[in-house]
Amino acid sequence: MSTDAHAGHDLHGHGGDHGHDAGHPESTLGGYLTGFFLSVVLTAIPFWLVMSGALGSKEATAVAILVLGAVQIVVHMVFFLHMTPSAEGGWTMMALIFTIVMVVITLTGSLWVMYHLNTNMMPMDPSQLP
């Protein structure tokens, strides 16, 4: 990986001799094609699952498409956005991990709190309305 990472260094205007900056990794045709192939498969499967109802239960389908979506995001990160632990001396990875933590807190927190808020509201069906 390190040879890959150093190949694209002319873009930075300074050499790769200092340790904290591993630079932006070089893109390769193989990497893009692998990412594209995996993305097509990982997009086609969830659409097929939902449109055909192949798994039977809704819960199983929901879990499956969420997992496939998460895997596809990782595929895009690795093959298209070239995320590696060494890119830019690890700072892009640090920023990404921090962002993922914030995103998880935002999403789970909102959904969790608001779900309980909804279910704990006073039950009322339309016939009780004035």
Partner: peptide, 18 residues
Amino acid sequence: LDVVWIGVFTFVYLMGVL
């Protein structure tokens, strides 16, 4: 933007129809 769209079609469209 493509990464965000993965979230959109999974969470909004597919989960919505489900």
